[in-house]
Design a protein around this nucleic acid. Sequence first.
DNA 1: TTGACAAGTTAGGCCCGGCTAACTATATTC
DNA 2: GAATATAGTTAGCCGGGCCTAACTTGTCAA
Lengths: 138, 138
Amino acid sequence: MTEMISGLTSVQEDYLETIYRLTIERKVARNKEIAEALNVKTATVTGAVQHLAEIGYVNYESHGYVTLTDIGVKLAKELLERHQLFYLFFHDILGLEEKVADEVACRTEHHITGEPYRRFRDLVTHFQNCTHPSKYQR
Amino acid sequence: MTEMISGLTSVQEDYLETIYRLTIERKVARNKEIAEALNVKTATVTGAVQHLAEIGYVNYESHGYVTLTDIGVKLAKELLERHQLFYLFFHDILGLEEKVADEVACRTEHHITGEPYRRFRDLVTHFQNCTHPSKYQR
DNA sequence: TTGACAAGTTAGGCCCGGCTAACTATATTC
DNA sequence: GAATATAGTTAGCCGGGCCTAACTTGTCAA
């Protein structure tokens, strides 16, 4: 419900990111794969993707493959970039296990954006260059 | 919609935190004040608070003041603690202006919890003790 | 004390994001 | 090429969270 900076909800952002990942990993994104990735039913995906098509983020043909529009790709890339940075922070710097780090990155990526994100990113980069991680892991 | 670790939605968590703050600042939380704090209408607050009462987080009497139950207070305190830590991080360490730091803390507090939160907290504490903040502000 | 204003509630509507059940379309396999 | 299995869609439901409009309750001042 609550809108993100992008104008989409965090759930809609999750769909975009998932579709982007699938098109990279498997060349193509299909309804069923999206459903599995997001842990929802295929009927739910149909509705969500139709709506994202109406507002211009995905290309959608009935019973066909789902692809992102240009603005869809742009947003998905940003999300993925943020996801990766948060994963790196929680996994490599704070030392959380992969699954946990990924989960928390999944949530965080929607909420830390813009200038706060950029500052955070610069801090993380600084860390990587200058500090021994284990120092912060207990 | 999406449930947090607490079993509540992030919006419900916001209500609890707001009620807690108001009871501290003004001794008492009233419908109108909650509405103003959360930027919603009073009718919306009525519904939300009734539901929170049903599930045991607030004490609610019609046309009376709203207070938190014991579990409500417990959760609200956790939220406030997280909020304050994230505010400290974004404001004091990353150097964002107050309003921006507060907004991003408001969002983040719902999503970084449990072990990830504790590790993050330890990192921030470490920062405060050992590092000159300005170093990370550009 | 009563009349006006402020505060709170109820009713009803809308959207999002889930679900199931039933249907249709596509693929596969014989 | 027909039968079956799989994938995708549609319809209809529910709950949360917001709104407005209309009503009720409470408060305060003349």
